[in-house]
């Protein structure tokens, strides 16, 4: 079997949110240039997992390795500088800052001719170019999600961590965002870790999937093909 580089690895992570023990021993990994999803019910601890990786809610025990470095107790800005971009479920577009300022704040030089710049974002996302001077908070949900993804891309990251990009969007917009994620993240060689309740979107963008139960434990690790052949597994995990 091909030996691939694990760009993200989590070992037996335990994370608390206040007093509640949200993640009770999670282990998983993501290979470089792989697209992986975490599927699970609402409240399973998917967001907390991403927040732990990002350093926003550090785990109480266990280990997180990013690109071989032990980052378990690192602050978010140091993790970001390793090339990790975060697209939170709330989008977190800065109100009072224009679309352009939201992007420029995140911009970091990339290598190569096809590196992301403000101009490249405008070229590929005309919806943002048209509104570059508008207050980011005045954008619609779909536009804000596009901006949040553009803000991740412009930092020229190695990994993008994306939380529920489909949340609150109409089916047509979910399709648009799915295409954006596929084209600019997955097919461009950026490693993707995505959390989704909309498993159809997760199946489209990711090639491998972790199924999470309500105690924040991984109960299954399957490829898209395996999941498509066994739809009853998804039903068991997501149906109410």
């Amino acid at each position: 079997m091909e030996k691939r580089h694990k760009i993200l690895e989590i070992e037996n992570m335990q994370t608390y949110y206040g007093d509640s023990h949200v993640i009770q021993g999670l282990s998983m990994h993501v290979y470089e240039q792989e697209a992986v999803s975490i599927i699970g019910r609402n409240g399973a601890g998917k967001t907390t997992t991403l927040r732990s990786i990002m350093g926003l809610t550090p785990p109480r025990s266990g280990n997180i390795f990013i690109d071989g470095r032990q980052t378990t107790r690192w602050q978010p800005h140091k993790i970001s500088r390793l090339g990790v971009a975060y697209v939170p479920a709330e989008r977190h577009i800065f109100p009072g800052l224009s679309v352009e300022e939201n992007l420029r704040l995140a911009a970091r030089p990339g290598s190569g001719e096809d590196a992301w710049t403000f101009e490249k974002v405008c070229e590929h996302f005309p919806v943002l170019a048209d509104r570059s001077h508008q207050d980011g908070a005045t954008l619609s949900g779909g536009q804000q999600q596009t901006l949040a993804i553009g803000r991740a891309l412009i930092s020229n990251p190695r990994i993008i961590i994306m939380d529920e990009p489909s949340q609150g969007l109409s089916p047509i917009l979910v399709q648009t965002i799915t295409d954006v994620v596929l084209k600019f993240c997955v097919q461009s060689g950026i490693t993707l870790l995505i959390v989704e309740q909309n498993y159809q979107m997760a199946l489209k963008v990711a090639s491998r999937h972790y199924l999470m139960d309500t105690r924040g434990e991984i109960v299954n690790n399957m490829t898209t093909r395996q999941l498509e052949d066994n739809p009853e597994i998804i039903q068991a995990h997501l149906s109410v």
Binding site: S80, R81, Y86, H92, F94, G96, L97, A106
Partner: peptide
């Protein structure tokens, strides 16, 4: 200006 609104996100963009 960004830090006065969503400081957590600013730190996720690499700002100490």
């Amino acid at each position: 200006r960004a830090s006065s609104t969503i400081p957590e996100m600013v730190s996720c963009l690499g700002v100490n």
